[in-house]
Design a protein around this nucleic acid. Structure first.
Length: 464
RNA sequence: GUCCCCAUCGUCUAGAGGCCUAGGACACCUCCCUUUCACGGAGGCGACCGGGGUUCGAAUCCCCGUGGGGACGCCA
């Protein structure tokens, strides 16, 4: 049987890191088995769903490069089909009208909680043989409930967590259609997973408790039961649950923050899944290796430092020319305009080994295009009065040479020797004068890129 | 409260009864490289939640505790 997986977000917000990992695993499973990956938008909560959120999810998927084979399907466009199935269930006695008001149900819930019982519908409108139902009130629009089995257990072999068994006594008759006639989540999922032929449902483990209900409905419909894999949640950097208030950000935020999608993907793949000791791999490799047997059943804490390490790794893999457009954009956001000279790609190549993020990279080379502010401590430490005449003389010599890193190095070396200095005695003041700080790559390489005229002009700012 | 799930270094994890004196990665520390800072290289620190079983033998299997998480909506 062909593998068919799906990612089914509800468009009530952006695609966050947890959703992204769920999508990634579903996608990889389908790719691994040469199956199909389906995107389904669960937008039946009309009040909270927005077109912007749909777009945000699509954008997130696109940025990550998670492509789907079918869809996106929108549940709101499948209303007629859901209603058909509901009618069929009513006709077959598998579902029934319930006239309990929200207030009534609320009172029931409170009573049960107060008596240390699990809050659940008591079946007062559930038709049974020989049971007399109350007369339907005229002013209440009924909801429709699924007639859940009352005895026995539901059990499934979860691909991540192992066998899970839940007693039907724990379940109640859930609402499958609201008073206004619209079907609810648990019902739509069942119809869709069934009719879309989903073979493996890979989703967050907050759905574990929905699974027995869905299996019961699937069985009532005579549908095949898919396999289930429930992924544990991702905790924030501080071990706390991610929430809107706390650390849950759009995957697109990682783009803004200067992370490469390949780094985020690689990081997410290793969060809760492993392939021996392998840490660094691309998505082609991941799709070959991925399986559900090596998923950790416990929650995983997000670790930005490890993401940084991976991101730094992937930045190093790229060439300056690959990154020119991206870095230019990031510099522009900081009002730094990239002039034709120095050549941006060369500056990137010089700095890409020392950046964790593209934003850091952009920041670190901004001084090539914009006079840097000089760090006060570095200034005091390295640009001492005695060094100024040396710099003056050096600047004259520099104005007379061919502007190559070798020639520059030679000039600095000569200057060092003539004065009986060690190399840093000259290199450090140059660093501070040219870059504004005391850390930079090899100073002759910096100067070669900065340009002869600009180098000399920056040095001379400090003389007189 | 009821039900369900989870539990190896600070973090992500390897581990399917003997290969475990518990391995790798991030972070941290030391040293090397060096023109400063990085990169890179070599080392180091550091964990099986507790208690009972089962077994010749348990990180691995079972039970109980403890701790953490999830679910209990006319949300998804």
């Amino acid at each position: 049987m062909t593998v068919r997986t799906r990612f089914a977000p509800s468009p009530t917000g952006f695609l966050h890191i947890g959703g992204a990992r769920t999508a990634l695993f579903s996608w990889a499973y389908a790719r691994k088995h040469a199956g199909q990956f389906i995107l389904r938008i669960e937008d039946t909560d009309v009040a909270r769903s927005t077109p912007e959120a749909v777009q945000a999810i699509l954008d997130g998927m696109a940025w990550l490069g998670l492509d789907w084979d079918e869809g996106p399907f929108y549940q709101m466009q499948r209303m007629d089909r859901y209603k058909e199935v509901i009618q069929k269930m009513l006709d077959e006695g598998k579902a029934y009208y319930c006239y309990s008001s929200k207030e009534e149900l609320e009172a029931l819930r409170e009573y049960q909680m107060a008596n240390q019982l699990k809050p659940r519908y008591d079946g007062r409108w559930r038709p049974e043989e020989g049971k007399a139902l109350p007369a339907p009130p005229v002013d209440v629009q009924p909801v429709i409930r699924f007639k859940n089995p009352q005895t026995g257990v539901v059990s499934w072999d979860d691909l991540v967590k192992g066998t899970i068994t839940i007693s039907n006594e724990e379940l109640d008759d859930l609402i499958i259609a609201r008073a206004d006639g619209t079907p609810t989540y648990n019902f739509c999922v069942v119809v869709d997973d069934w009719e879309m032929g989903i073979t493996q449902v890979i989703r967050g483990d907050d759905h574990v408790n929905n699974t027995p209900r869905q299996i019961n409905m699937l069985m009532a419909l005579g549908a095949a039961i898919p396999q289930y894999a429930h992924l544990s949640m991702i905790l924030g950097d501080d071990g706390q649950k991610l929430s809107k208030r706390h650390g849950a950000v759009s995957v697109m935020q990682y783009d803004d923050d200067g992370y490469l999608p390949q780094a985020v993907l690689n990081y997410l793949a290793r969060l809760g899944w492993s392939h021996g000791d392998d840490e660094i791999f691309d998505m082609a490799q991941f799709c070959q290796w991925f399986d559900l047997d090596h998923i950790t059943p416990s929650a995983a804490q997000f670790n930005t430092e490890k993401l940084n390490w991976l991101n730094a790794h992937y930045i190093k893999q790229l060439n300056g020319t690959d990154l020119v457009q991206d870095i230019e954009k990031r510099l522009a956001l900081q009002q730094v305009k990239v002039a034709e000279q120095p050549v941006l790609a060369k500056a990137i190549d010089l700095y890409k080994e020392r950046a964790n993020t593209l934003n850091e990279l952009a920041n670190s080379i901004a001084y090539f295009y914009q006079l840097p502010e000089t760090d006060a401590a570095a200034l005091e430490k390295h640009i001492t009065p005695d060094i100024l005449p040396v710099m003056q003389a050096l600047s004259v010599r520099l104005s007379e040479i061919n502007w190559t890193a070798e020639q520059i190095h030679h000039e600095i070396e000569t200057c060092v020797k003539q004065n009986g200095f060690k190399f840093p005695k000259v290199a450090m003041p140059l660093r501070v004068m040219l870059t504004g700080g005391a850390q930079s790559p090899s100073i002759d390489a910096v100067m070669a890129i900065l340009g002869q005229q600009e180098t000399i002009s920056r040095i001379r700012r400090f003389i007189n």
